[in-house]
Design a protein around this nucleic acid. Structure first.
Length: 553
DNA sequence: AAGGAAGGCGCC
DNA sequence: AAAGGGCGCCTTCCTT
């Protein structure tokens, strides 16, 4: 399949350079300003991979023009992956431009408009960068895995742009009704809603602190202590342990205050337009490969307000999430037959009980989370030896990742995404043994940092490979949805509107909802095969076809 | 006035 | 024996 490299020129013109299979230029088209969308639409009739510096700089305008692309290489994202991958010879990526590619940031429509050719991306040569990346990939120790990662990462960039373009269907009227029921009518700017004000009065009375502002953690802590309560912080979890009349109203105040500040009327004003919630998804925004988001808190849309996410008339939401993604990924990447056997159950934790590793589901969950996060709250520590005997490869993999991190080494995901190098005095010690003591901090402090980094690398390999599975799922699903039909632009077909780590939401015409649900499952199975080949690890989904997101699950 | 740290809490 | 991963974003509070 040919590739076409797009490059901005002066005055809004674009150069499109066609590369043949061997990477040599076989043609070049110069496009005057305004003609790019038409060119891309035509060229898409024959399979092509677009190569561009950064999807956020090209794709939103194409989508606005009604043009969808099948595949791309996002050089900014693939550069970032390759630069950190321990499977790659970094010398092959090095050039005068490398630092500029390292520094390149995605853009959002909210960014101040850049004047033409003032964008740092415009000083970069995408053809040269693409050649360096292809050479590095070809020479890497696992070119097939890395190539899959680069393709998935780039597909993710397309999905992210498409999800922002389409937006998550959001009924402001439903949301406002919910706010009014819980908080009272919208108050004038700067004052508390009636329900919150009443709760604040109750809190002040219970603590005999008539001037208290319950939003001030410091003042609240002092008031609690003056009332004779032995607390060191004001977290909800701490307050729940207390027996005092203030606890009820204070917890309710915190719950509703959180709703008001995070997803209240101001949030609606800022983020919901024309029936859609539009935030920006940031592929590769997290070092592990998970996505970040920007604007509106898309990574934490509370269950409380999900009733407002409602499909259009004649449309449905297909909501799908993977049960226990990360333990399943751990079973697959470690090749642990016993854990894969447990993962054959719809509930992996029940599978562990059935396999005799533990007595109860709760034990199973605590133990697995402990193994993946490095936590051992009492009970988990006692179960670990049994877990290690029963699942030697799975537990061995995360333990080795933790030890490597503690030694200051880089670890990597199944497909080759590398962890960051540790910084700080303890890491320098780890690398250069025998340095003078007392360089920075106490021995205890250094050990604390070392163990914390071990917990990070322990989790990195699992979280990061989980993110790779999810990217493959998403990329395959995107293409399946497109093929499901329709002739119109994206928003008239089934399309993705939300993605969060192990969960997707598809907005689809009613009559295609069941077909979408089936494709979501097939895409999950395909992702499992892409990452783990024939190794038998299942990724069962919970799939709901609903009018409102709140009805899923 | 602006910026950042800290406390806190929502999501996976 | 103990050891809790990754985010975004709100308000308060302090510094510059």
């Amino acid at each position: 399949m040919n590739r076409v490299v797009l490059e901005r020129r002066a005055e809004g013109a674009v150069a499109a350079r066609e590369l043949g299979d061997d990477g040599t230029t076989v043609g070049e088209t110069r496009l005057p300003a305004g003609s790019l969308a038409g060119f891309v639409r035509e060229r898409e009739r024959v399979p092509v991979r677009w190569v561009w510096d950064d999807t956020t700089r090209w794709y939103p305008a194409l989508l606005d023009a009604g043009v969808r692309v099948e595949r791309c290489t996002d050089l900014r994202l693939t550069h970032a992956v390759l630069r950190r991958s321990p499977l790659v010879d970094q010398a092959l990526l090095t050039a005068g431009e490398t630092a500029a590619w390292d520094a390149l940031q995605p853009v959002t429509p909210a960014d101040p408009a850049l004047f033409p050719l003032e964008d740092p991306a415009d000083g970069l040569d995408p053809v040269a960068e693409h050649e360096r990346q292809q050479a590095a990939l070809a020479a890497s120790t696992h070119p097939a895995r890395l190539a899959l990662l680069l393709a998935a990462e780039s597909s993710g960039a397309l999905v992210a742009a498409e999800m922002t373009h389409a937006g998550l269907p959001w009924r402001a009227d439903v949301h406002e009704r919910l706010l009014t029921e819980l908080l009272g009518p919208r108050p004038p700017h700067g004052s508390r809603p009636a329900v919150l004000e009443a709760l604040a009065r109750e809190v002040r009375a219970a603590l005999r602190a008539p001037e208290l502002n319950p939003d001030s953690p410091g003042a609240l802590l002092r008031a609690l202590q003056s009332a004779g309560l032995a607390v060191e912080d004001t977290r909800s979890w701490t307050l729940e342990q207390l027996d005092h009349p203030v606890v009820g109203p204070l917890l309710e105040y915190k719950r509703l205050s959180r709703l008001l500040t995070a997803n209240g009327w101001a949030w609606l004003d800022a983020w919901v337009r024309e029936g859609r919630f539009r935030s920006w998804f940031v592929p590769g925004g997290v070092v592990t490969g998970r996505w970040a988001s920007s604007g509106g808190g898309a990574l934490s849309v509370p269950v409380q307000v999900r009733p407002a996410a409602v499909a259009d008339d004649g449309w449905r939401l297909v909501v799908a999430d993977v049960a226990q993604l990360e333990p399943r990924v751990l079973a697959g990447m470690s090749g642990d037959d016993a854990m894969a056997e447990a993962a054959r159950a719809a509930d992996l934790y029940e599978g562990m009980v059935a396999g005799g590793a533990v007595e109860t589901r709760t034990q199973a969950k605590v133990a697995i989370l402990g193994a993946m996060y490095g936590a051992t709250r009492g009970g988990s520590g006692r179960i670990m030896p049994r877990l290690t005997r029963r699942y030697p490869r799975a537990i061995g993999l995360v333990e080795e990742a933790a030890r490597a991190g503690e030694r200051g080494e880089v670890v990597h995901t199944l497909l080759g995404r590398g962890s960051p190098r540790p910084t700080g005095a303890w890491a320098e010690r780890a690398v250069a043994l025998g340095e003078p003591a007392e360089v920075a901090g106490s021995r205890e402090e250094r050990d604390r940092h070392r163990r914390a980094w071990g917990r990070f690398t322990r989790n990195f390999v699992v979280q990061g490979t989980g993110a790779e599975w999810a990217l493959c799922w998403l990329a395959d699903l995107r293409n399946r949805l497109w093929r499901l039909g329709g002739a119109g632009p994206l928003q008239q077909r089934p399309h993705l509107v939300f993605f969060l780590h192990d969960e997707v939401v598809v907005h689809t015409p009613d009559h295609l909802a069941d077909a979408v649900a089936e494709e979501v499952r097939r895409a999950a199975a395909a992702a499992g095969r892409l990452l783990f080949g024939a190794f038998p690890v299942d990724f069962p989904l919970d799939v709901s076809v609903v009018a409102s997101w709140a009805d899923a699950g």
